[in-house]
Simulated scan of single mutants.
Amino acid sequence: MTDVFEEHRRLLFGTAYRMLGSVADAEDIVQDAWITWNRADRTDVEHPKAYLVRTVTNLSLNRLKSAQAVRESYVGPWLPEPLLTSPDVAEEAELADTVSMAVLVVLETLTPTERAVFMLREVFGYSYAEIAEVVGKSGASVRQSAHRAREHVQARRPRFTADAGEQREIAEKFREACTGGDLGAVLELLAPDVVSWSDGGGIVTAARRPLHGHDNVARWWLGVLAKPEVRDGEMRVAEINGEPGLLLVHSGVTVGALTFEAVDGRITALRIAVNPQKLRGIQD
């Protein structure tokens, strides 16, 4: 019983994390799933993996619905919690790109039911009838939700991003430019229409609205990095949500996590999480 659950633990965490965008909540869901599995009559469970994924999805769906009010009153932009991943994340879970920060941000714009339907259909290939049983909707309703969610995600997910090697090179160049305080070098790396989001949750100082344009973004970034609590630390390249990103580390504690999107060698989107409550999944 324990061996079966442990075999799928990482997959279950990944499922809950994709649904919720929260490391702490995903860990709670996996624990709740273990309790459910431990108490269940498993004599009729032919496919434990499918059963456990359904359980985690259902628990996550309930959690996501109850979390909507909290997110609506959140101070400033709400970003999913960053997660440190290994370079071989593609071998660890189905559709590894669905754990990227860019795609998680898109998933946040779906309704809880659409998010569950999208994950079960697109990631795990569940039939509409199986999904209907999980979300408590009719087959026709599930088909409509799946169609809406698929079109929504496809229209908003990044289409022309740099590969891992290019992204790591850009991360290194951005780190060098920022730590050197080189405004010209930072501007050179940013696309003219770049957008930057920062998530401080009202706990630490962060921009309350997205910043637009390479000049605004570059000057804001260099201003942040000039602050004593950041200036005396360091920036490290790390694998964050399956892609190269940057960690801001001060006195051995990670105080920020940066992910980005790049097209043709230039950064088009920057996302920085500095809310300490959201950095638990990246303390290494």
Rank of each mutant, 00 (worst) to 15 (best):
L187P: 04
A185L: 06
E229H: 12
S60W: 01
T179W: 09
E166C: 13
P48Q: 06
V103K: 04
N38W: 12
D25L: 08
I35N: 10
E94W: 07
D88R: 15
E169Y: 05
V30A: 04
G256S: 11
D232I: 09
V224K: 02
V237Q: 06
R143H: 11
P210L: 04
Q144R: 14
G125R: 10
E133V: 13
L95W: 07
V135W: 06
G181Q: 12
Y128E: 12
V99K: 03
L110W: 08
G202A: 06
R39K: 12
A171M: 10
V153Q: 04
E122P: 02
F5E: 00
V255Q: 05
S73C: 03
F124D: 08
E72I: 05
E151Y: 10
S73V: 12
S127P: 07
G252I: 15
E172S: 09
E122A: 12
A140V: 14
L190N: 02
A207H: 08
K173N: 10
E114K: 07
G180Y: 06
H250T: 11
Q68C: 05
W37A: 02
A67R: 07
L83Y: 05
Q144M: 14
P48I: 00
W78E: 05
K173P: 02
D41V: 09
E92S: 13
R231G: 05
A206Y: 00
P87C: 11
A257H: 02
L270N: 04
N62S: 15
S251I: 07
R121A: 12
G233T: 05
S66V: 11
V45A: 04
R10V: 10
P80K: 01
R157K: 15
S73N: 14
P228H: 11
P80E: 04
P48H: 04
T161H: 08
R157P: 02
A96T: 10
L79R: 00
A26E: 02
E166W: 06
A164V: 11
L11W: 01
A262W: 01
D32M: 10
W220R: 10
L189A: 05
E46G: 06
Y17E: 00
V249I: 15
W37C: 01
E46W: 03
V230L: 15
E94H: 09
M119A: 14
I267H: 01
R54F: 03
L79E: 01
L104T: 05
Y128H: 15
V263H: 12
D182R: 11
G252V: 09
H212S: 09
G125V: 12
D284C: 14
A206E: 00
E166D: 12
V204Q: 01
L222D: 05
R143K: 14
D88G: 10
G201M: 03
L211R: 08
V230M: 10
S60I: 01
A129K: 13
V263L: 14
T205S: 10
T161Y: 04
H214D: 13
